[in-house]
Design a protein around this nucleic acid. Structure first.
Length: 622
DNA sequence: TCAAAATGGAGGGCCACCCG
DNA sequence: CGGGTGGCCCTCCATTTTGA
């Protein structure tokens, strides 16, 4: 693609190169974003033309003067170029200058005409035309081209300006904004307005101003500036300006000397330079490297974005915690004399929080995240937890004077916190280290550590589901339908066994694993996904079945809180368009659980934006 | 309808080059 | 020699398109 003006072809890359010189590496994507509308990212990577623009980026205040010079090179008239506003200097400007890029009639333009967004795929066929044209705005004499005016020299700091420092008030940023606005106003013409309305003073450009302009462009290559420079005017300059001129000349001398070097000599210099840097890098301590990275990432816009993300995550976390705190609770002290080892009486005032028909099965979620099924009995004496309660006590090695705090989560589901005789939350030695959050993650109590529940003894971990079924349907207890709430026991207990260290189950166990997800049932809506290669490559995308999306999920972008069996919460970005999928956050989720291709995940919708995930390890037959 | 691929946006790491 | 920046390549994320 070329930019054409009056038959003079100019590679668009030159423009890219030009703007790239004024934007730091950190900001160049903004330029890409703009010019990406004219050519694809791939085209950008084609080799640059041999005639390189060597306008220096270290003095962004010279942007407009250099832009002017550049436009002149293109033989394109710019009405007037004025200096932009920055924190450090005022602006003198008289008129608005503009250049327009006229877009040919292309699919791109038609899209533009329809006021559609430019983003999204632009396949080769949908690219802009082969050329764009820089329109000559006014036909003015050569001598009047490129008017540039600079304010007082004192206003111009001699210090370097980091481009990133200009982020807030960066004139280029405003300029780009103006471009976009103009682009919206003009359908077939993209007007680039370079304007500043602040100053109206000033007159025609003077020679001094021109040289001042040169002076502040000393970073530019001399060759590029020859046409801007007027010899003989330097004597009228200030001493500081002369110093700068000398510096510039010294720079040019160095450059000329460098140009006389042979390729071999350059290679030697390059090698020395490289080895020096490697030494310096090798001498850096880890802390220094870390510091460098911190500095690198401490740019305001990035920092803001990261802060925003962290704040959003924290606010969501607070919401969950607050929500949890709002749920009704009661506590009980275990003591054999109180018969709490046989059954547990729920405080009469608390029964009102339980569903209208309290009789039936209830689930207790222990500190480990595992679930126990108990029988909720209503009698004249009150409401009791029985038939499974003793298993819960045994599995947690509960003794006298230990305190249990029950939080009712609804749907006959209790979350239980355990405090020992020291009134501290009871810790279990089999806890596994936290992986991704500050929350405690615990596995099921090993049989060695807790008083064993006879029905669970000696079971291979992966068989937990089958065993749970056996326990629930134990003849000694009331028959329980697998479709009832306690089915959560199945998944969670199983997931509990698929430890984060990912000890792969044996083939025999795998068979059971593969069998179990299919038998998974729940009162809550859920969907099952077998992770495929596409879930990991090229990007982490987990598509959600259309039916499930239509039936239960919102029709707008949102973030789901997905909790695993450890209670660890993961935030997954949910997008819905042609297809609904989890995209953002899936990477961390997959890595956090060491998921692999073939693993099966069951996502259970527990709330409006809350899910619980049950993970079934890889199965060869999947 | 959905899995897979394509595409763009944003940003990071490394190295070479340049300048003071 | 140290620091700043560009070029190149890469990853990750988000979205759209394609084709079975």
């Amino acid at each position: 693609m070329e930019v054409v003006e009056g038959g003079l072809p100019v590679q668009v890359h030159q423009i890219d190169r030009f703007f790239g010189r004024f934007y730091s590496r950190r900001s160049r994507h903004r330029v890409d974003r703009f010019f990406g509308r004219f050519y694809s990212r791939r085209n950008r990577r084609t080799p640059l033309p041999t005639t390189r623009l060597c306008l220096h980026n270290r003095r962004p205040r010279n942007f407009f003067s250099q832009f002017s010079a550049y436009i002149r090179r293109l033989n394109c008239l710019v009405d007037e170029i004025s200096y932009p506003t920055t924190r450090r200097r005022a602006i003198r400007s008289r008129r608005t200058s503009f250049v327009s890029f006229i877009m040919p009639d292309t699919p791109f333009q038609r899209k533009h005409d329809q006021s559609e967004s430019f983003r999204g795929n632009q396949r080769d066929g949908a690219q802009p035309g082969n050329s764009i044209h820089i329109q000559r705005i006014h036909d003015r004499p050569e001598s009047s081209r490129g008017n540039q005016r600079v304010g007082d020299n004192e206003e111009i700091s001699s210090q370097r300006e980091r481009v990133d420092d200009l982020d807030e008030n960066c004139p280029l940023r405003q300029w780009i904004r103006n471009i976009r606005v103009a682009a919206q106003l003009e359908n077939s013409r993209l007007i680039l307005r370079i304007s500043d309305q602040q100053g109206t003073s000033g007159g025609n450009r003077s020679v001094e101003n021109r040289d001042t302009n040169y002076l502040h462009g000393i970073g530019e290559r001399v060759d590029d500036l020859d046409e801007n420079r007027i010899p003989g005017q330097e004597q009228s300059l200030l001493q500081s300006q002369r110093v700068e001129i000398r510096r510039g000349e010294n720079s040019a001398r160095r450059k000329r000397a460098r140009s006389k070097l042979t390729n071999e000599q350059r290679a030697v210099i390059r090698d020395i330079d490289t080895s020096r840097r490697k030494r310096a890098r090798a001498n850096q301590t880890t802390e220094q490297r870390s510091l460098c990275r911190d500095i690198d990432t401490s740019r305001p816009h990035r920092l803001e974005r990261k802060k925003r993300k962290v704040m959003e995550a924290e606010s969501k976390k607070r919401m969950w915690e607050e929500e949890e705190d709002m749920r009704p609770k009661f506590f009980k002290i275990i003591h054999s004399n109180l018969n709490t080892t046989q059954h547990l009486r729920i405080p009469p005032n608390f029964v009102k929080h339980i569903s209208t028909e309290p009789s039936g099965r209830a689930t207790l979620e222990g500190p480990t995240g595992s679930l126990w099924s108990v029988r909720l009995c209503v009698s004249e004496d009150g409401t009791f937890l029985q038939n499974g309660w003793q298993d819960f006590l045994k599995d947690h090695s509960l003794g006298n004077f230990e305190v249990l705090v029950f939080r009712y989560d609804g749907n006959r589901h209790f979350n239980v916190q355990i405090y020992d005789t020291t009134r501290c939350e009871k810790q279990y030695g089999f806890q596994e280290p936290a992986i991704s959050s500050g929350r405690t993650k615990q596995g099921r109590p090993p049989k060695k550590l807790v008083g064993s529940s006879c029905k669970r003894q000696g079971r291979p971990p992966i068989c937990q589901m089958v065993q749970s079924k056996a326990r629930i349907t134990d003849p000694g207890t009331e028959a329980v339908s697998l479709e009832s709430n306690n089915t959560e026991d199945i998944g969670s207990s199983m997931c509990n066994r698929s430890s984060p260290s990912r000890t792969l189950p044996t083939e025999k166990e795998n068979a059971k694993v593969w069998k179990d997800p299919l038998s998974f049932t729940s009162n809550f809506p859920y969907f099952m996904k077998c992770l495929t290669k596409s879930s990991f490559q090229p990007t982490f995308v987990l598509h959600i079945p259309r039916k499930f999306t239509k039936a239960y999920l919102p029709r707008c972008k949102s973030q789901f809180v997905v909790k695993d069996w450890r209670g660890t919460a993961w935030i997954l970005n949910y997008t819905c368009g042609a297809t609904a999928a989890f995209c953002g956050g899936l990477s961390a989720f997959v890595k956090g659980h060491l998921l692999k291709e073939g693993d099966i995940c069951i996502f259970e919708l527990k709330g409006e934006l809350e899910m619980r995930v049950h993970i079934f390890p890889i199965c060869p037959t999947s």
